[in-house]
């Protein structure tokens, strides 16, 4: 790829190449030192060899970036080989509860041991050419930190998405009420994402419990608009395709009014006013009758008196 090089960059280039050569030459020493740094040590807890190996890979990637003269470019192709690895390391740190700032300073701490090695390469550690090389290395390590920060942020997004999914699952338990009868008490707003989860977990429960009847109880759903009604009808239709009958229960009077006002046709959907009514229906359809024991008890009492 042709990159237009400004004058300033052109001056930087020899230093970048020097840094690249140095990173190649001292890869082993750098990897050994990094293995003892907080970031590598805490991620690769099982074996030090793994930490050293990871350090070698990162060093090689930095050398490639410097060789390409792109020490300040977080999109440099040289980073591609270690982006996944850095992401896993950042994610692993994030899981232990350390915040992004903490990860960033752990990455920043990697610079010092390398700078030491680099200065030692020069007969006069503070001569101008040594300073130039150190500046190039500092820029490069700063870029590495940005790359890690970027992967940390995307790891954070994934974490949020995963937690949201877990929340959905926790909020929609499927309960076995009786042989062949399962129920989902829905509580809260039923949006598209949640209704997908409800549908999937209900259908899975139908298979697992060999359910003939599935009750969707919407007592805890604050409002039913046409979108929610559509979700309910889809769930009912999917359950029916699998051979189970769905009953929607807990339609409060106000919601019944809304449904009528909106002109929503729940047509083919079987409804009951309460979860108890729905269960009674499911049981009677299976030939199970609920009868109070009191009659028998009263008869027994009468006998003793």
């Amino acid at each position: 790829m042709q990159v237009s090089v400004s004058e300033e960059n052109a001056e930087q280039e020899p230093a970048a190449y020097q840094v690249s050569a140095f990173l190649e030459r001292r890869r082993e020493q750098i990897a050994q030192r990094w293995a003892d740094a907080a970031l590598f040590r805490t991620v690769f807890t099982v074996s030090r060899d793994e930490a050293v190996e990871a350090g070698r890979a990162v060093t090689a990637a930095l050398a490639a970036v410097a060789a390409a003269g792109r020490i300040d470019d977080i999109r440099a192709s040289g980073f591609a080989s270690v982006r996944d690895q850095l992401g896993r390391m950042a994610a692993s740190r994030a899981r232990t509860g350390i915040d992004p700032d903490g990860v960033a300073s752990e990455v920043a701490a990697l610079r010092e041991p390398v700078t030491e090695l680099l200065r030692a390469e020069f007969p006069e550690p503070y001569a101008p050419e040594a300073q130039e090389a150190v500046v190039a290395l500092t820029v490069l390590m700063g870029t590495l930190r940005l790359v890690v920060m970027e992967t940390t942020l995307s790891a954070g997004e994934e974490l949020i998405a995963r937690q949201r999914e877990q929340l959905h699952e926790v909020a929609t338990p499927v309960i076995k009420l009786w042989d062949s009868t399962v129920a989902v008490p829905l509580i809260g707003t039923l949006d598209s994402a949640r209704s997908q989860v409800v549908m999937e977990s209900l259908l899975d429960a139908i298979v697992a419990e060999r359910a003939r009847y599935a009750i969707l109880d919407i007592t805890g759903v604050p409002t039913v608009d046409s979108l929610v009604a559509q979700h309910l009808m889809k769930t009912v239709a999917a359950a029916r395709l699998m051979g189970a009958e769905c009953i929607v229960s807990g339609i409060r009077p106000a919601i019944a009014q809304t449904i009528v006002h909106l002109g929503i046709d729940l047509g083919t959907v079987l409804t009951r006013s309460s979860l108890a009514d729905a269960l009674a229906y499911a049981l009677s359809e299976q030939g199970v009758e609920i009868a109070p024991l009191r009659a028998a008890g009263a008869a027994a009492d009468a006998g003793t008196r």
Partner: peptide, 9 residues
């Protein structure tokens, strides 16, 4: 993983 939620509590 999950489509973006429409409502945020």
């Amino acid at each position: 993983v999950v489509p973006p939620s429409r409502t945020v509590p």
